[in-house]
């Protein structure tokens, strides 16, 4: 690839990325491996607000909400990280 073509390519790609979402916060990309469409045994996250997700994660972490597994995963994130994940998950729905 010539340098000129490389430069143009980088420019065009950065233009294209104007429509790309900002990168997901740490941990957020893993959720969709288990939480899918509504109707499955594992609850879907779609329709939940950022506050609802943050609150649920806090309750899993403290043990206030009983769980088979989410208690073990929620402990891997501090409050700031949890809120960032929750906001990102909630925002996924509103984007096309």
């Amino acid at each position: 690839m010539t340098r000129a073509r490389a430069t143009v390519l980088a420019f065009l790609f950065s233009m294209g990325s104007a429509c790309a979402q900002s990168p997901a916060p740490p941990g957020a990309l893993s959720c969709s491996g288990c939480h899918g469409a509504a109707g499955g045994e594992i609850p879907s996250l779609s329709g939940l607000s950022a506050d609802e997700i943050t609150e649920a994660m806090g309750a899993f972490k403290s043990g206030a909400r009983p769980a088979t597994l989410m208690n073990r995963l929620a402990k891997g994130f501090n409050e700031t990280e949890t809120r960032a994940i929750a906001q990102w998950l909630a925002s996924q729905r509103s984007s096309p």
């Binding site: 990168p23 740490p26 941990g27 990309l29 893993s30 959720c31 491996g33 288990c34 597994l69 995963l73 891997g76 994130f77 990280e81």
Partner: peptide, 8 residues
């Protein structure tokens, strides 16, 4: 940025 990953 530095990521976090899960496994189950």
């Amino acid at each position: 940025a530095s990521p976090k990953l899960l496994n189950t």
